[in-house]
């Protein structure tokens, strides 16, 4: 299972890697990181689209915002679920994200318990197909 995390804060990479240490070690998930909307799009276009199963994106990023990225991703890869992570958990951002097709909306600081529940759901959804 490959996940893509998009955030302009580079330390997010380290945090995710440690939080999902076990899952990464036992190979149930693989993490990829992009530090801007453009980079995320580049990664998605280069890699086989099926490879990435799920995308987490920050909203507040310079240049292309997470919401703009969401819009573009939904247009190009409608089958891949995208969830938003934002420090601003206000109604405006939430509604815009849902309207654009976001699956979930996580508020920073990230509650990794909830995130893991979401990840496991995805993994479980996919596993029956594998079997």
């Amino acid at each position: 299972m490959k996940f893509l995390v998009v955030d302009d804060e580079k330390d997010v990479e380290l945090l995710f890697q440690q939080k999902l240490r076990k899952e990464i070690r036992n190979g149930s998930i693989e993490l990829k990181f992009a530090f801007s909307g453009n980079e995320a799009l580049e990664i998605m276009e280069k890699s086989e689209s099926e490879e990435v199963m799920y995308i987490f994106s920050d909203i507040n990023m310079p240049g292309m915002t997470g919401l703009e990225l969401l819009d573009k991703l939904k247009a190009k890869f409608p089958q891949i679920p995208v969830s938003m992570i934002s420090a601003y958990g206000d109604a405006e951002n939430y509604e815009k994200a849902i309207e654009l097709g976001a699956k979930e909306f996580f508020v920073k600081p990230i509650n990794f318990e909830n995130l893991k529940v979401e990840l496991n759901k995805i993994i479980e959804d996919k596993e029956p197909k594998k079997e």
Binding site: E9, D11, L15, Q18, K19, R21, N60, A87, K108, P109, I110, F112
Partner: peptide, 24 residues
């Protein structure tokens, strides 16, 4: 607010994950 919130989030997240790591 944003600029303080972000590092604070990291402080919280990294200390939390460190606790977990110590358990591990």
């Amino acid at each position: 607010a944003h600029e303080i919130q972000n590092p604070l989030n990291f402080v919280n997240n990294f200390s939390e994950v460190s606790q977990e790591l110590i358990d591990e």
